[in-house]
Simulated scan of single mutants.
Amino acid sequence: MFRFSEGKNSALGRFLLFQLSSLFLFTPLNSQNFSPKTITTNSEELILVTEVSSGKPRSEKVYGNADFLKREYSPASTFKTYLVLSLLENNIIDPKEKIECADKHIPNSPRLLDLRDALFYSSNDYFEKVFPKLGKEKLDLTLHKIGYLENYKSDLKVQDWWIDLTGLKHGGRIRLTPKSVHSSWSKIFENGYGLPKDLIEEWKKTLFWSECPEKSANVYGKTGSWEGSFWFQGALVKSENDYIIYTILNRNKSGSRTGTIIRFYELAGCKVPSLE
């Protein structure tokens, strides 16, 4: 089960209150319909959705507070998605190797985590331990190669965004628009980076969250929480030509990591996984 510490009120309770305060009605996905009908939003939320389906035009929709689209935010721990790509690309780590980590926010910590676990729980300890083998220069090369820093001038140097090892967990000084964050995530599932297929498949394995039998699909995702932003990037994938990509940005003061996870699974029409 998810057992993240969220204070006195449960994440589920806050989520239900959030639903009651929504400005629009929400119709969840059903087992016969893979794509969302309508989506609930309020003034503190932005949701970007990209749908790809064989034989149908690509669909890109935005729900919620459009003012958020004009601003730049820290990608928070969604940045670790691309840190993992650099680790894999440079053969720095065996994805199955388990490392003992002692993050306070992770259940049953200290505990052994492999690469997929480290992303799922967003372990800072794990990445601080493996990063010295990679180094900021190789990471910077990966980020430039895939266009992750496209919001910036092409001559951006690593010292312009790098802070220190602690700042690695949220991408240092990097600030991106929600559309840029969403675009980077979407490209993973459409192989928009032109990377070798075996590298893409290994990358996706680390991003796997759960099966969704309700939709005959798999869920991939990454959370992020920093500077008042709560992100969840999710992908509901039936096949390489049939999937829906979500980016959720919640700026509510009562928002939480767990609440944003629950939000995604409600949108996707899938059961929240009971994984420890």
Rank of each mutant, 00 (worst) to 15 (best):
D94S: 09
D94W: 03
P95M: 10
P95S: 11
P95A: 13
P95H: 13
E97N: 12
I99Y: 00
I99S: 02
I99Q: 03
C101S: 13
D103W: 00
D103V: 01
K104S: 14
H105N: 08
P107L: 12
N108E: 14
N108G: 06
S109A: 14
P110Y: 15
P110G: 14
R111E: 02
L113H: 06
L113R: 06
D114G: 14
D114V: 05
L115W: 03
D117E: 07
D117F: 10
D117C: 13
A118N: 07
A118K: 04
A118W: 09
L119S: 01
L119N: 02
F120M: 05
Y121G: 08
Y121C: 07
S122Y: 08
S122L: 08
S122Q: 06
D125L: 09
Y126V: 03
Y126P: 03
Y126T: 02
F127M: 04
E128D: 12
E128M: 14
E128Q: 15
K129H: 05
K129A: 04
V130C: 07
F131D: 01
P132H: 10
K133I: 04
G135K: 07
E137W: 03
E137D: 14
E137V: 12
K138W: 06
K138S: 10
D140M: 11
L141V: 11
T142A: 10
T142L: 09
L143H: 01
L143Q: 08
L143N: 05
K145P: 02
I146M: 04
G147K: 09
L149C: 14
E150M: 06
E150P: 00
E150V: 10
N151S: 12
N151I: 12
Y152F: 15
Y152V: 13
K153L: 09
D155Y: 11
D155G: 06
D155R: 03
D155T: 13
